[in-house]
Simulated assay, not measured.
Amino acid sequence: MTPDPVHDLLRVLDLVDTGARTSEDIFTGPSQWSPLGRVFGGQVLAQSIMAATRTIEDERPVHSMHGYFLRPGDVDAPITFSVDRIHDGRSFSTRRTQAYQHGRPILSLIASFQSEDDGVDHQLPMPADLPDPDSLPTALESLGRVAELPEAAWALGRPFDIRHVDGGIYLSVDQPTPHQAVWLRSTGPLPDDPALHRAALAYVSDYTMLEPVMRAHGVSWATPGIRVASLDHAMWWHRDARVDDWLLYVQESTNAHGGRGLTHGRIYDRQGRLVASVAQEGMTRIPELRRDADD
């Protein structure tokens, strides 16, 4: 683990252009430490978006992406990103990024970029009467004495401060519900680069997306034998936002079945602007529930 998680985030997002120019653009990047030696999904999402962004020659920010996690990544190996310039039109550009390790794909992603344009404008309002983020406990305060255990380093060593509105689910769930809201921001300032902030928002969007599935069944991260993994991830950026200022992530799990759970999320800034929408399906295997189902 690094003593400066934000510096480490910037390090992994600063991809190296290999200079290879065949039918695709090739970049490489490192990985961060992660529990069990598996690459954090949000990291490879953000890196794939940065790789695609590096091939956009006009001022066209990413506005949507759809990605599939194909294999677990290895934190001890670099990642190669291959970008296919699928389409460049008058207003939109489309890129496909494949992330590889050991010669095998670990993520496949398609992203769309659009020049700024005028049009109709509306959004769902931000939930009202939520507590201020500074009034909520930090991950360290929520974990208490358990913070001394090696497993707790995952929550404490992240480049983002994440505070649950209705209590964390690190150790237990107070009241089962498929709804959740968290405040989040980076633990330090980031450069004034809108493209970097959009990629960093994709990074942090993967942290808590499957927690509403778990919360709906009263299951915490401390549940013995729990296995949770992202399968796919879709994201739409609506407006620019800084991830080094507080953002509200409102989440709802609309379905769980067959060992998979689906969650939808909306991200607002402190002014109430809807800055992004997210959808993710993930594997959610909980031993005690599977035994009940078998019975």
Rank of each mutant, 00 (worst) to 15 (best):
Q43V: 04
P61E: 02
P61W: 01
D88S: 12
P72A: 13
V62R: 03
G41F: 01
G67K: 03
D84I: 11
T80Y: 11
F40R: 02
F92D: 11
Q43W: 02
S82K: 13
P61C: 01
L36M: 12
A51F: 04
V75S: 09
R95A: 14
G67Y: 01
H66W: 09
Q47W: 09
S82D: 03
T53F: 01
P72H: 04
A77Q: 15
Q47C: 11
H87K: 15
T80L: 11
I49Y: 03
P61R: 00
H63R: 08
F69M: 09
D76G: 13
F69C: 08
D88H: 10
I56V: 15
S48K: 03
M65Y: 15
P78T: 07
L45N: 03
Y68H: 15
H66T: 05
I56M: 02
H63E: 02
V44N: 08
Q43Y: 00
R38S: 04
S82Q: 10
R60G: 00
S64N: 14
P72Q: 06
H87S: 13
Q47E: 13
M50F: 10
T53Q: 14
R54L: 13
R38T: 06
R71C: 07
R90F: 07
V75F: 04
T55W: 02
V44S: 11
R71M: 11
Q47R: 13
R54D: 11
P78Q: 09
G41L: 01
D58T: 07
M65G: 01
V83D: 08
R95V: 14
L70W: 08
M65K: 02
R54N: 12
H63A: 03
R90G: 15
L45C: 08
V44D: 05
R54A: 15
M50P: 00
S64Q: 10
F69G: 05
F92T: 15
S91E: 10
G67A: 15
T80R: 15
S64M: 10
T80A: 13
A77H: 12
H66N: 12
G41Y: 02
H87I: 00
L36N: 10
Q47L: 07
S64K: 01
R90M: 12
T55S: 07
V44A: 08
S48H: 07
D74V: 06
S91I: 11
H87M: 07
G42K: 06
G67M: 08
V83W: 04
E59K: 05
Y68L: 05
G42W: 07
L36S: 10
R95C: 13
G37S: 01
I79A: 15
F69Y: 12
T53S: 13
M50T: 09
R54C: 03
F81Q: 07
F92S: 13
G37T: 01
D84E: 13
G37R: 00
G73P: 11
S93K: 04
P78F: 11
L70A: 06
S64I: 05
A77T: 06
I86Y: 05
V44G: 06
E57A: 09
E57D: 14
M50N: 03
L45E: 02
R71I: 10
R54E: 11
L36Q: 12
E59L: 03
G42P: 01
R85P: 14
S91Y: 08
Y68K: 07
R95N: 09
F40T: 00
R60D: 00
P72S: 07
T80Q: 14
S64E: 03
G67N: 07
S93I: 00
P78I: 10
T94K: 11
I56A: 02
T53D: 12
T55E: 06
I56Q: 04
M50V: 15
V83A: 02
Y68D: 04
Q43N: 02
